[in-house]
Computed example of a mutant assay.
Amino acid sequence: MGGSTILTIDGVSKSYKNRCVLHPVYLYIARGECVVLCGANGAGKSTLIKLITGIEQPTAGTISFSTEKKKRFAYMPDHMNFPKELTPLEITSYYGKFLNTSMVTIEATLKKVGLWEERHQKVGSFSKGMSQRLNLAQCLLSDVDLYIFDEPTNGLDPYWVIQFKQLIRELRNNGKTILLSSHIMRDVVEIADRVAIMFQGEVKAYGTLPDIYRTYRCRTLEDVFLSLHVNPKNEPFVTHV
């Protein structure tokens, strides 16, 4: 795990009219670690990621980055509607122009996500999993300090879920920082350095899995979420650097 903080989320909340969908969140992300926002659909994971990426603005609170690169992060949304008449090579080349990415890197990225052989195939004929891998490719074209993935394994078959987890490990081993959201417990357990448990728009716990298990007196993440459904007023806690 890293040492210094690369991303600080200080009291960030979000309301639409008079309805609060995200209660104040206080999180830090340290350099070189993988942090997973874990929770059911509607828990607030995607809302928080949209605030971090600037897609939406918080009602209150601040978000600050500390990164040496001009481009602060690369982002993979939960889905991307690519033009159906274009090919993976055309799409990644388009993104590559803005990022000053070489064709060597574009080729390597398409190979990494298993789409090099389909580089001239129109995206309109792609399966959901193939489209999701192209979504992953556009994110990986950037050489940044922080990668943000929103439900990245949605639509991936078991082989590519395994490959994605290996990719996360490689990024982390290369000193990159990863923030991702997932509602799939096995994904969280296998790749997370720290976990933010989200429930009904609140961060109920933040720390390593052993920290969280001790706090909730549980042995698995499944048991933690069952505990939250039974006792949703459990007080959140935060571990410190």
Rank of each mutant, 00 (worst) to 15 (best):
L140E: 11
V25R: 00
F82S: 06
T105C: 14
D187E: 13
L37Q: 04
H23L: 02
Y16R: 11
L22G: 04
Y213W: 12
K71S: 12
I162Q: 12
L27G: 00
G2I: 06
K128E: 04
G201H: 10
A192C: 09
G42M: 06
S64I: 02
P210R: 11
A43Y: 13
S66Q: 13
R194M: 07
L51A: 03
L140G: 10
T220Y: 09
G207T: 07
L7S: 01
M185E: 06
E56W: 07
D143H: 01
F98S: 13
H79D: 15
L51T: 01
K233V: 07
L115C: 04
L134K: 08
K128I: 02
V238W: 11
S64L: 00
P210M: 09
G2V: 04
A74V: 05
S227N: 11
T153P: 01
G114P: 00
F199V: 06
S66V: 02
Y94R: 12
E202P: 10
S181D: 03
I212S: 03
D150N: 09
Y75P: 08
R169S: 12
V35E: 04
T5S: 15
I162S: 10
C38T: 10
A137E: 01
I52T: 10
V21L: 07
L22A: 05
Y216D: 01
L221P: 03
Q138C: 10
L228E: 13
N234H: 15
S142Q: 09
G3Q: 14
V195N: 06
D10W: 08
L221F: 07
V144M: 04
T67V: 09
F98G: 15
Q200L: 10
G44S: 11
I197K: 08
Q138M: 13
G39M: 08
V123T: 08
T59L: 14
N81L: 13
M130E: 11
L156E: 02
D143A: 03
S66N: 15
K165Y: 07
S182C: 01
L51W: 03
D187I: 04
T101R: 14
K50L: 10
P210C: 09
R194E: 08
E222A: 10
S15C: 10
Q138D: 10
K176R: 12
M80F: 14
G3S: 15
L37M: 02
K14I: 06
R172I: 03
H79Q: 14
S93L: 13
R217C: 12
I29Q: 00
G44H: 08
D223M: 14
T208G: 02
V195P: 05
H79K: 15
E33H: 00
Y26A: 05
L48C: 06
R172A: 02
L140H: 08
V189G: 02
I29C: 00
A205C: 07
K128A: 04
S125I: 08
D10T: 08
Q200G: 07
I55A: 15
K71D: 11
D145F: 00
T59E: 15
P88E: 09
I191L: 03
L37D: 02
L86W: 14
Y95P: 09
G124F: 13
N81P: 11
L140Y: 09
